[in-house]
Computed example of a mutant assay.
Amino acid sequence: MNKEAAANAFKLADEAWSAELLKVFGKKSGPAMRYVPAGRGMHGSNLRKIYEARETARTTWCSACGIAA
């Protein structure tokens, strides 16, 4: 995957995770949950699935850019 496609995939995955954080934790707490383990969601939850998709997109982007993930 080229850098541009990887960056776009990562951006979309990050936006999806942010939206799910707001849905699960609310407008007030959602943004802060990015920085704590609970923001990754419980195993099997929709939040966890979206977080894992974001992490996959992030590592793909890192690889495309030659950055250590």
Rank of each mutant, 00 (worst) to 15 (best):
V36S: 04
E20T: 10
A57F: 05
K27Y: 07
A38G: 05
A13C: 00
E15T: 10
M33A: 01
N8M: 12
N46A: 15
M42W: 11
L12T: 12
D14Q: 11
S29E: 10
K28H: 06
M33F: 02
L21G: 05
E52N: 15
C62M: 08
F10C: 07
K27I: 12
A7F: 09
G30L: 02
K3N: 09
A38Q: 08
G44K: 02
H43Q: 15
G30Q: 00
C65N: 15
W17V: 06
W61K: 12
C65S: 12
L47A: 03
E20N: 05
A53I: 11
K28S: 10
A38H: 02
I50S: 03
A57C: 00
N46Q: 15
A32I: 07
V36H: 02
A6E: 02
R58T: 06
G26Q: 04
A6C: 04
N2L: 07
A64Y: 05
R34C: 08
I67K: 11
E4S: 10
K27E: 14
G26S: 03
G66F: 05
S45W: 11
G66Y: 08
A38N: 02
L21V: 02
L47C: 01
K28I: 07
A6G: 04
A57V: 00
A16P: 02
Y51K: 05
A68C: 06
N46P: 10
I67L: 13
C65F: 10
V24E: 12
A7W: 10
E55M: 15
S18F: 13
L22C: 01
W17K: 05
K49L: 12
L22V: 09
A9G: 02
T56S: 13
G26E: 04
C62P: 03
W17I: 05
T60G: 05
A13E: 00
Y51F: 14
T56R: 14
G66P: 04
K28G: 06
V24L: 09
C62W: 05
R40M: 11
L47R: 01
N8C: 10
L12P: 01
T59R: 03
W17C: 04
Y35P: 00
C62T: 00
K28C: 03
R48L: 04
I50V: 11
R40F: 01
A64H: 06
A68K: 12
A32V: 09
